[in-house]
């Protein structure tokens, strides 16, 4: 989808947030680490797929996406997906959260040392996206053009490469196709690393880079 997440090449975001020391905690508030754990619980238990999670974030209204802290957006997506999976009831979640906010509820505590290793096994399976699949149509060195498609569903083909011509520099095997996987269909498609001249993407006058590499699945590509 052409959502607010697809920011490559946009102007006027101005300065970066300040850098952090290498040994700083990645979490700035206590809840952020909890959200990281909730995310792993969702993926690892199979409550939702990685691509479905990304699609959920992409669907947030642009104003909310830009103005809300990263882990808070994640939390909003995770809540929706656990509700969609039937694991939690939104109404109950709301009541519990309101109670905790008011200092009235209790956080349920239970120890189970087996839980994390099991979840991490599930998470690993999600991230290992390579599958058996058909023969790739393109080879290293082939020129390819990215199809000019603007699906309103999930895609990992960013806008800035669409319509542009590049060169296949590596064939990466066949990997789960996010565009289908986000919508409940797991199938594998050949994946390529494609290099574009920066001038092809942006126009000579508008870039100071030389080349850009990105992974593109076969359905995104056509002969030049």
């Amino acid at each position: 989808m052409d959502g607010i997440h697809d920011v490559g090449g946009m102007d006027s975001f101005r300065h970066l947030p300040p850098d952090q020391p290498d040994d700083a905690s990645p979490f700035h508030h206590e809840y952020e680490g909890v959200v990281q754990a909730l995310y792993l619980a969702g993926l690892g238990s199979g409550a939702f797929e990685l691509d479905r999670f990304r699609y959920e974030l992409e669907g947030h209204e642009p104003e909310y996406y830009l103005e809300t802290p990263y882990y808070e957006r994640w939390l909003t997506a995770i809540e929706s997906l656990f509700a969609e999976a039937g694991v939690v009831d939104s109404e109950e979640l709301r009541e519990r959260a309101r109670a905790l906010e008011a200092g009235e509820g209790e956080v349920t505590e239970e120890t189970d040392p087996e839980r994390l290793p099991e979840l991490l096994d599930g998470v690993r399976d999600v991230y290992m996206s390579e599958r058996e699949g058909g023969e790739p149509a393109f080879s290293e060195g082939d020129r390819v053009r990215v199809r000019k498609e603007h699906p309103s569903s999930h895609t990992r083909c960013p806008r800035y490469v669409r319509g542009c011509e590049g060169e296949v520099v590596a064939v990466r095997g066949t990997h789960v196709f996010p565009d289908a996987n986000a919508h409940g269909e797991e199938r594998a498609e050949p994946l390529y690393n494609v290099r574009f001249e920066s001038s092809e993407l942006w126009g000579e006058a508008n870039t100071d880079g030389d080349g850009l590499h990105i992974e593109l699945w076969e359905p995104y590509l056509s002969p030049p």
């Binding site: 619980a41 939690v88 905790l100």
Partner: peptide, 29 residues
């Protein structure tokens, strides 16, 4: 709602459902 309360509320439900445990959350962090 405050994200801290939301995160802990969801954590509580998932712990009760057997999907998550308190030590798993602590260890991830």
């Amino acid at each position: 709602i405050d994200p801290q309360a939301r995160a802990r509320a969801l954590q509580s439900i998932l712990v009760e459902e057997g999907i998550l445990s308190t030590d798993a959350v602590d260890e991830v962090i």
